[in-house]
Amino acid sequence: MERINYQELVQTILTKHSGNDLDKDTEVQLIFDTKREHYQVINLGWKDQKRVYGCVIHVDIKEGKIWLQRDRTEIRIANELVAAGVLKKDIILAFKAPYLRQFTEFAVE
């Protein structure tokens, strides 16, 4: 069985999430650093004279594993990765404290 290209898969999933603009005064930006394997979806702009800026999704690929640094989606990126064929042992919920990761069904490190 051929190994899944994690870079391509992460970019595809994040691109799908970038189509959810909050409104006409804000935008969703994709930030892909393919050399260092960092991927983000950012909301930014203005709403009711207040600045909107926040990271919705942040994914890193380190040593062949997918590290989910931030996931502010309803669907949960980890579930999308598993549905696409990524093994749970290759996904780390980095937004959880290291001592809590052992209680998830995903990798500890």
Rank of each mutant, 00 (worst) to 15 (best):
T12S: 08
E37D: 03
I4T: 05
A97K: 14
D48K: 14
A94G: 11
I91L: 07
D90V: 01
D60I: 05
V28T: 15
L100A: 12
Q40A: 10
F103K: 07
Q49Y: 03
L44S: 15
T104N: 08
K65L: 06
I13F: 11
I75K: 10
D23L: 10
A94N: 14
R3C: 02
G19C: 12
E80C: 04
A83T: 15
L14S: 05
K96V: 05
I75M: 06
Q29F: 04
Q69K: 13
Q7P: 00
R3F: 00
H38T: 03
T104K: 09
Q102M: 12
D21C: 09
A83P: 14
V10F: 08
R51M: 13
T104D: 09
L100K: 12
D60A: 07
R101P: 03
E74I: 09
W67G: 01
I57E: 15
I77W: 14
I42G: 03
C55S: 07
K89R: 12
K24R: 12
D23K: 06
H38V: 02
F103W: 03
D23E: 12
H58L: 01
E2F: 07
K65P: 04
Y99M: 02
Y53G: 06
K62P: 01
V10C: 01
K24C: 13
F106H: 13
V59N: 02
L14W: 04
D25W: 07
K35W: 00
L44D: 15
S18A: 13
I92Q: 06
E105I: 09
Q29S: 14
G54F: 08
E74F: 02
I92M: 07
K89V: 01
W46A: 10
D21W: 08
I66M: 03
L68W: 03
E2V: 07
V10G: 00
E63M: 08
L68D: 01
G45L: 13
T26G: 05
K47L: 01
K50F: 05
Q29A: 11
T12I: 06
V28Y: 12
P98V: 09
V56M: 10
Y6V: 00
R51G: 01
V41C: 01
N43W: 14
G64A: 06
H17N: 11
D48R: 11
V108E: 15
A94Y: 11
